[in-house]
Write a protein that binds this DNA or RNA. Sequence first.
DNA 1: CAGGTTTTCTAGCAGCGCTAGGAACGATGT
DNA 2: ACATCGTTCCTAGCGCTGCTAGAAAACCTG
Lengths: 190, 190
Amino acid sequence: MATQTRRERERAEREQLIVTTARELAEAEGWDAVTTRRLAAEIEYSQPVLYSHFKGKDAIMAAVVVQGCEEFAEELRAARMKAEGAQEVVVSVANAYAAFAERLPALYDAMFTHAVDLPFATPEAPAALKAAFGELVETVRPLAGEDELPVLTETFWSSLHGLVTLMRSGRLRREDHEVRLALLIRRFWS
Amino acid sequence: MATQTRRERERAEREQLIVTTARELAEAEGWDAVTTRRLAAEIEYSQPVLYSHFKGKDAIMAAVVVQGCEEFAEELRAARMKAEGAQEVVVSVANAYAAFAERLPALYDAMFTHAVDLPFATPEAPAALKAAFGELVETVRPLAGEDELPVLTETFWSSLHGLVTLMRSGRLRREDHEVRLALLIRRFWS
DNA sequence: CAGGTTTTCTAGCAGCGCTAGGAACGATGT
DNA sequence: ACATCGTTCCTAGCGCTGCTAGAAAACCTG
């Protein structure tokens, strides 16, 4: 009876350990280093244990993405709350967005670059994803004007995403990042 | 004497065959299908032949990218030339950009998403890359105003790139693509 | 302590990028 | 015309990948 609940708890803890370890390993050495063998060694279990929790490596990455989106949404929310005035809010959120991608590049890649088997722009999308997008919607809302809000948000999001990814992959000079970000906001919202 | 030149020519032809086949295979079945074994089978040679032309798989992809950039630059140039008036030119080039990414998604991914070992935002960048970016610069120039031209171009490019990649990876609803593109241009250039 | 269930591990498959070593080919000198 | 020498090419194999079947170990229960 009680043993059953303990087992379930331990199992849940181990599942969380897998997700956390995968994320840390990816952040430390890149997703290429996150092999099932390596991951199993890090959590001090054998390989097949991973498959008793997740369908495969992609499912582990998807779990990392979902948890990452929760954090991401929180950070965007904090940035949105601490600023006042529509313009300042946009600046604050955009900076938080870029800072997140800069601080956790592997996580960001998994969330928005790698092909993870998750529904995105549909009602079935995980709550965390919708929450993160929702923060952007709320950021854009006061400045939307007559444009349709979701589409405008998607467009602004795309621009931020483009800046972040092209810089991270070495296609843009890093030293001009702040200039580009300021430029984008000015062109977009004035 | 003459045999030597014939051999060199045949060798060059085979190298081109490798690049072309890699690109077609990637476009038809995705980059995951482009394994060295599969590629060797397609060109009807054994695996090690690939390594007598290229250092490794990454080098083959890099060659595909460079050739792809040449085509890309040409298409952008054509789009820029056929339109008149700064605004119309931007619309034309932006549409050509998005159409290229839509028509050749695997190539586009290799060019701007995958980590290919090529210098980008530096003087050592391949001419084809600089040519493609140059087309965007010329597109932006008449509308630059007091902003610095290269940085403004990078920012606009990033926005296009973000739109294209997020849509292609299923993060954005495809049916709103034209609306987003129009929105971006209006927000950016008026 | 024995029985039965659940959990975990060992070992292996097919495929990956890449490479060493020998076989087969083709141009050359007699 | 033939043997020799270089070059080109392929066979076979290494260590790695994600993933899985079946044996082994650990565990709770009676």
